[in-house]
Amino acid sequence: MAASADRRRARILDVVHELGTVRVADLAARLDMPTVTIRRDVAALAEAGRLRRSHGSVALPDPGAHGPAGPAGTVGGAGGAALLGAAGQGAAGVPDGRGRVIGMLVPTIGWYFDEIIDGARSAATAAGARLVLGISPHEARDDRGQIARTLESGVDGLLLTPNRLPDGPAEEEEEEEESDWLGDLPVPAVLVERRAAPGSAAAGLDAVGSDHRHGVLLALRHLAGLGHRSVLLAARRDTWTAHEVRAGYADAVRRLGLEPRPTLDLHHGGGPLARTDPERVADQLALGAEEGVRAVLVHDGRDAIQLPPLLRARGLRVPEDIALVSYDDAFAALTTPPLTAVAPPKRAVGAVALDLLLRRLGPADLPAHHIGLLPTLTVRSSCGALPGQD
Rank of each mutant, 00 (worst) to 15 (best):
residue 134 G to K: 03
residue 210 S to Y: 10
residue 181 W to I: 00
residue 120 A to Q: 10
residue 164 R to H: 07
residue 199 G to K: 08
residue 89 Q to V: 12
residue 124 A to F: 00
residue 206 D to F: 11
residue 140 A to S: 15
residue 96 D to M: 05
residue 197 A to M: 11
residue 89 Q to W: 04
residue 179 S to I: 00
residue 97 G to E: 05
residue 124 A to H: 02
residue 122 S to F: 03
residue 194 R to C: 12
residue 180 D to W: 03
residue 123 A to S: 15
residue 190 V to T: 14
residue 195 R to Y: 00
residue 145 G to V: 01
residue 182 L to I: 04
residue 173 E to G: 00
residue 195 R to Q: 14
residue 95 P to D: 02
residue 111 W to N: 14
residue 91 A to H: 12
residue 126 A to G: 03
residue 124 A to Q: 04
residue 168 G to F: 14
residue 139 E to M: 04
residue 158 L to E: 15
residue 157 G to W: 03
residue 213 R to P: 03
residue 112 Y to K: 00
residue 125 T to K: 09
residue 119 G to R: 04
residue 191 L to V: 13
residue 179 S to E: 15
residue 167 D to R: 14
residue 100 R to Q: 11
residue 111 W to S: 15
residue 202 A to V: 13
residue 129 A to K: 08
residue 199 G to A: 07
residue 116 I to F: 02
residue 98 R to N: 06
residue 146 Q to A: 15
residue 135 I to C: 06
residue 160 L to K: 12
residue 193 E to R: 05
residue 121 R to L: 13
residue 148 A to Y: 10
residue 164 R to S: 09
residue 113 F to R: 02
residue 143 D to R: 07
residue 182 L to R: 13
residue 91 A to N: 09
residue 100 R to A: 12
residue 166 P to S: 12
residue 137 P to R: 07
residue 82 A to L: 03
residue 196 A to M: 08
residue 205 L to F: 14
residue 117 I to R: 08
residue 198 P to M: 09
residue 185 L to N: 13
residue 168 G to D: 02
residue 160 L to H: 10
residue 166 P to F: 10
residue 118 D to K: 06
residue 180 D to C: 08
residue 172 E to Y: 05
residue 148 A to D: 15
residue 161 T to D: 11
residue 167 D to V: 10
residue 94 V to W: 08
residue 120 A to G: 00
residue 210 S to N: 04
residue 100 R to W: 02
residue 133 L to V: 10
residue 211 D to R: 11
residue 82 A to F: 01
residue 196 A to H: 06
residue 138 H to I: 12
residue 165 L to F: 04
residue 174 E to V: 08
residue 135 I to E: 12
residue 82 A to E: 01
residue 87 A to W: 01
residue 130 R to K: 08
residue 203 A to W: 03
residue 203 A to N: 03
residue 113 F to Y: 14
residue 105 L to H: 08
residue 159 L to D: 11
residue 196 A to R: 06
residue 111 W to R: 14
residue 160 L to E: 13
residue 170 A to M: 06
residue 202 A to W: 07
residue 152 E to K: 05
residue 130 R to W: 00
residue 207 A to S: 15
residue 144 R to W: 13
residue 144 R to T: 05
residue 134 G to E: 11
